[in-house]
């Protein structure tokens, strides 16, 4: 998209919302918000609001898709019609099908699928309000919801994006930066080993910029991980201590 003349960085190096280049937007995570789901999470990330629900392991539908060696993960990323400025047409789109696929593959790396043969684990993520970086927000919420559902995992999955604005590498792009910036680079990692489980890119980086962006995004993800940890640890209080 062509920049209509918005300056993304001011003379002090501050961004449109007053953040520094390597700062995250405010994030709040709350685990266990839905009664009818096995596990759930509500997450606000800047202007993003996402709600994740996990069901299962349960019977595979349709039955012929059942894998006798491992569980099947169904991930649905859905953008609510009212989540964006111009009404989004309800139902899966080209974009949401792609996001669902890459996010599903990221979670499959973390879950011990072989413990639940011939079953299906459903992960539904609804984006209630979108403001750039929804796939990261959705995946972050989904992994908290999975842990909350009691599903055995190697690690949580934490996502965060880096990008390029006015030729500089910035962490966690907001809407204007995503639209008028030069690059957007979302990644997801398993924080313990820092293994990358999702990586996408839109825009151009030089080799050096890519290295810096990766480092920035991993640093951001580690900060998000601390918040995920906090949300899970604060959900329950141990009584009588």
């Amino acid at each position: 998209m062509k920049n209509p003349g918005i300056k993304l960085l001011d003379e002090n190096g501050k961004r449109l919302d007053g953040r520094g280049l390597k700062e995250l937007r405010p994030i709040t995570i709350k685990a266990g918000v839905l009664d009818r789901a096995d596990g759930s999470c509500y997450l606000e990330w800047g202007g993003n609001k996402v709600l994740a629900g996990v069901y299962g392991p349960r019977e595979v539908i349709p039955r012929h898709l059942a894998d006798p060696l491992k569980a099947r993960v169904v991930y649905r990323y859905n953008l609510a019609p009212f989540s964006v400025d111009e009404r989004a047409r309800p139902g899966p789109s080209r974009r949401s099908i792609e996001i669902s696929k890459v996010s599903r593959e990221a979670l499959e790396k973390a879950i011990f699928l072989e413990e639940f043969p011939k079953t299906q684990i459903d992960v539904y993520v609804e984006v209630l309000e979108a403001e750039a970086g929804t796939r990261c927000a959705a995946l972050t919420a989904a992994s908290v919801a999975l842990a909350d559902a009691g599903i055995p995992m190697r690690d949580l999955v934490t996502a965060c994006a880096a990008g390029k604005i006015e030729g500089k590498i910035a962490l966690d792009l907001m809407k204007e930066e995503d639209n008028y910036g030069e690059a957007d680079f979302p990644i997801a990692i398993m924080p313990r080993t820092k293994e990358i489980v999702l990586m996408q890119m839109d825009g151009n980086f030089t080799r050096e910029e890519l290295t810096e962006a990766l480092e920035t995004a991993i640093n951001g993800a580690m900060q998000v991980y601390e918040l995920q940890k906090k949300a899970l640890k604060e959900r329950y209080k141990i009584e009588g201590e």
Binding site: A147, M153, L156, K233
Partner: peptide, 21 residues
């Protein structure tokens, strides 16, 4: 000691179930 653990957290104590190596 009782504390809450999350997936991927290192466990120093000797535990038989619900851990991986």
């Amino acid at each position: 000691i009782k504390r809450i653990v999350i997936p991927g957290e290192e466990i120093k104590a000797r535990v038989k179930d619900h851990v991986y190596e």
